[in-house]
Design a protein around this nucleic acid. Structure first.
Length: 563
RNA sequence: GUCUCCGUAGCUCAGCUGGAUAGAGCAUCCGCCUCCUAAGCGGAAGGCCGGGCGUUCGAAUCGCCCCGGGGACGCCA
């Protein structure tokens, strides 16, 4: 759990604070001044590894020029037992600290000691968190949008696990309600059309027009022939509904598994209805006083809880809305299954709904800060340089399994793990090309390169030694130091990725780490160097291999030993 | 109209809880394999950080107002 970046930062804070106290005690700086200084990692390493703005921030309060303050303070900064070996004044008055070889050695020690757990943080403190994601309607196939949601949810879950949460992955199966009934009617109509000709049966206006329903009807016919032609319609529809849902759900399960996504639970909406849990939840909402009747429907006063508009819970003709059932479902997450925190991964088209139904959680007396939404903007599909309109109605969208027929799981998982707030432009032609334009190969290549290096050297009798046995002071080139600092960065990345629910940070981290490695590899030789140096560099390379594999595994991407 | 996300290099995007000369990949151009994998490395070129005003020692970053684009505003889910 060691975070050496933070450790060094804390040390800068301590050193500067103590320096100020001593200077003030000696009467050379005004005493009793409280300064809120930043400690930054400069982009340009000529400015050191850490920069404190203490003197700049204190300039106004002390009524002294910043450089003057810095000059006094630097006399009170002893570096002997710190992780730094140099401090200097630069620019308008920054105090710039340079890390020493003790710190660099420590990074390699830590990576070795923590192994595949390196980078873990304890920010979750073992809290139980549910990540609900994809939850596509089982009335059809999964789209490219679900490809994004799947990666985002799964990777967020993985990052949270590494950050010390106990994570539960869940898929909510909408196997009840209006849409499912329409689905059954559509399926039935296609089945009857198959048997009696297209003209004899009127297809429901608001039904599912996609090809997949026709295919499903054909599948049903193959399994059951015309035996359901004479069955009483209600019974027939009920059976076909069950058939269609089971078929689609198992298809979704296998598609997602192929994509590297395995859930802890597939939670069927129908169970909430059957057990009376939805009724019970609506009763509670009525007792809360946030409901009213209008036009024969039961409404929920979202506006009384700060929302924009009220929502219907129970329709005039009876039957609960999606809104009502969703509140019940979330009550189940918190009250029955006792999750400390729940994260719903949703497309931007559900944003408004999400904000409003959060009010429902509040009305039930549940602290709504326990519920977070990870809203992702929609995916725009590009083919031949033109936008492909993804329309569910026409059934002409490109499905997740189509996509995985074209590109590798590795490439897909890397490409779709992008910052949720941004629209994602997915260029199909580019993804299919699978060449070096794809950054996933850049990262995987770094891993393969190291593996083959280790293999090569082992044949010459050189093996990776324990960190305690190498001389880290030999790793003093610019490239080596940049590489080690990059290795030390992982715990910070995990922390931020978990805090912001942004696992794409790990993508960027991997690209950076691979880049630092390639630069090190091209500028420094390992094979053929004298033993001490060879062993130090070999250890460094192996540490990089370990961290690359660690992060790739976290994202569900393979780490090939050969390419 | 209201809410929300976005606007940074030719393209795709980082950087946004304020710090020094705004970064990367791709595309373009120029170099580098008798030497551990060239799926690599180095270099060049490329920018009113959408616009304006404000906050401050300091703004791509914070606040307000515009402009432009996506999404949502159903007794659908």
């Amino acid at each position: 759990m060691a975070n050496l970046i933070q450790y060094a930062k804390d040390e800068v804070a301590k050193l500067t604070h103590n320096a100020y106290l001593q200077a003030a005690a000696a009467g050379v700086l005004p005493s009793g001044v409280s300064i809120n200084a930043s400690i930054d990692i400069p982009k340009d390493t000529n400015h050191g590894d850490y920069a404190s703005s203490f003197a700049l921030a204190g300039s106004k309060l002390m009524k002294m020029p910043p450089r003057k303050i810095a000059e006094i303070m630097i006399q009170y900064i002893p570096l002997e037992n710190s992780c730094f070996d140099h401090v200097e004044i630069a620019g308008p008055g920054f105090l710039n600290f340079k890390l020493g070889s003790r710190w660099y050695g420590n990074v390699l020690n830590t990576i070795e000691a923590e192994g595949e757990n390196y980078g873990a943080t304890d920010q979750g403190k073992g809290q139980r968190v549910m990540v609900e994601f994809v939850s596509a309607n089982p009335t059809g196939t999964m789209t490219i949008g679900n490809a994004r949601g799947g990666v985002l949810g799964d990777s967020t879950a993985a990052v949270l696990e590494r950050a010390g949460y106990q994570v539960w992955r869940e898929f909510y199966v909408n196997d009840a309600g209006n849409q499912v009934d329409k689905f059954a009617l559509s399926l039935e109509a296609r089945y009857l059309q198959l048997l009696q000709g297209e003209e004899s049966i009127v297809f429901p206006e608001d039904g599912y027009h996609g090809e997949d329903i026709k295919k499903l009807a054909r599948q049903f016919y193959e399994d059951y022939g015309d035996s359901y032609l004479t069955v009483e319609p209600n019974e027939r529809r009920a059976f076909m509904k069950k058939f269609g849902l089971e078929y689609n759900i198992s298809k979704m399960q296998s598609d997602l598994e192929r994509y590297g996504i395995v859930y802890d639970q597939w939670f069927p909406e129908s169970t909430l209805h059957e057990s009376g849990y939805v009724d019970e939840t609506i009763d509670l909402l009525e007792q809360s006083g946030y409901t009213y009747e209008k036009d024969g429907a039961l409404w929920f006063k979202v506006t009384a809880l700060g929302g924009e508009k009220d929502e219907v819970l129970r329709r005039t003709g009876g039957g609960y809305t999606y809104f009502a059932v969703d509140i019940a479902y979330h009550r189940n997450k918190f009250e029955v299954r006792k999750f400390d925190k729940v994260i719903d991964v949703l497309g931007a088209d559900h944003h408004g709904h999400a904000l409003r139904f959060k009010a429902g959680i509040t009305a039930l007396g549940i602290d709504n800060s326990r519920l977070d939404f990870l809203i992702m903007q929609l995916v725009q599909l590009l083919q031949d340089g033109k936008e492909v309109k993804v329309s569910k109605r026409s059934g002409k969208s490109i499905t997740l399994s189509d996509l995985l027929d074209e590109i590798s799981v590795d490439a897909a998982r890397f490409a779709f793990n992008a910052k949720p707030n941004n629209h994602l432009i997915f260029d199909l032609d580019l993804a299919i090309r699978q060449d070096s334009e794809n950054p996933v190969y850049y990262v995987q290549y770094a891993h393969a390169r190291i593996c083959s290096l280790l293999d090569r050297l082992s044949k010459e009798g050189y093996f990776v030694l324990p960190a305690a046995q190498i001389n880290a002071a030999l790793l003093s080139s610019e490239e080596e130091r940049a590489l080690i600092k990059c290795l030390a960065q992982l715990p910070e990345e995990i922390f931020a990725a978990a805090r912001d629910y942004d696992p794409s940070r790990i993508n960027r981290y991997l690209i950076q780490l691979a880049g630092e490695f390639h630069r090190f590899y091209s500028s420094q030789h390992i094979k053929g160097e004298e033993r001490d140096l060879l062993e130090a560099r070999l250890k460094l390379a192996d540490s990089v291999r370990s961290v690359l594999a660690n992060c790739l595994q976290l994202l569900g991407i393979s780490a090939p030993e050969k390419m």
